[in-house]
Amino acid sequence: MNKITHHLSDQLLIGYSAGTLPEAFNLVVATHLSMCDECRAAAQSFDSIGGALMQAQPTEDLGDAAFAKTMALIAKGPKVAAPAPAGIDVPDPLSAYIGGGLSDVKWRPIGLGVRQAVLKTSHAATARLLYIPSGAAVPDHGHRGTELTLVLQGAFRDKTARFAAGDVEVADEDLHHKPVAEIGHDCICLAATDAPLRFSAWVPRVAQSLFRL
């Protein structure tokens, strides 16, 4: 894989470590961490802060039977998690949400050749896969909240930079952009938004009400 140049912010990594992000953001973070050693190491560091905080804080007493009840839980045996499907073309955390690989995604056209698939997460934010054909663009839009866009395949450009596989763009209210897929490869992204996008033109605005953009 090419070198990843656009990383997650410390704020997002702290939120992931603290467990305060919406599920859709956690999905983008976990998928990026699967691709990016640098952010994975940083996330581990933020976990250690959590560990240090937990250890240093005042304690809360447990009930008298807590230990016995815990031993009873232990005796029941561990919960067995379903094994991750093997040989998949996306990182494990994402394939768990797709229920397989990219060939299993149920794409829906949203206009101008762009397709999307909304993934099932909690409602605090929305996660979607975006398929942007080579040379096509996601309509010009701004953001009311935060939008995370992680490139899985291909690359896109907007006025700020070029984003290739593994790169993540963190967009907030200040950014108004029009991501265009590079010529040569179709671009597939995992995106999460915690507020509806703000489209400039009326056609995408109509589409927005139909497609939860």
């Binding site: 599920e23 999905l27 955390p93 909690s122």
Partner: peptide
């Protein structure tokens, strides 16, 4: 929070 927790690979 009744959410799933995606973990890195």
């Amino acid at each position: 929070r009744k959410q799933r927790r995606p973990e890195p690979e």
